[in-house]
Amino acid sequence: MDRQFLEGRRRGVRRTVARTLVALVLMGCFAIALVPLYDVFCEVTGLNGKTASRAQALSAQSADQTRLVTMQFITRSSSGLPWALTTETRQLRLHPGQSAEVSFTFHNLGNRPYVARAVPSVSPSEASVHLRKLACFCFENQRLAAGERFEAPLVFQLTRDLPEDVKTVTLVYTLYEQQVSLSRHSAMQRPGGET
């Protein structure tokens, strides 16, 4: 077999391998980029029912007197955390554009201090971008000593452009313990993560 033929094949193989490796690296980067992309996508569309992670300004708009939306609150504690999160107001009806305040009570039932955070989730998810929180305990961790009680307000507004077919909005708060080690290793937390 002539040398030229073999040399040509060898060069071809090298070129193909180089190109496949480039494709491989690009797909690897894409896979990692999917995480922030997903976050951005969800933030814009509210698809995963998450609300904004910091306080938003009251959008100055008059209340839409033509319709009433039912706002429901559900609270729950995740496994292993001896806390109770309660609210007197399980449900209220309000006009889009109107702002309202609801008070929540944290209670540490355990016998040692814990650090925890209430993580919100909105259903239906298309309502989540229309829920503006002016003040919320969910923006930061709560540290409660054993047996301590703590009352915190949620001030919110449903914007007027809430889709017509949304009649009920449910806001769920789930309590999660924040590992102390978490804050120690905060440098390792994912970039862009909202902690």
Partner: peptide, 14 residues
């Protein structure tokens, strides 16, 4: 093992 929260709702993941 490293305390990240990619898939953990408690830490802001999903």
């Amino acid at each position: 093992h490293f305390g990240t929260s990619f898939f953990n709702a408690a830490g802001g993941g999903d």
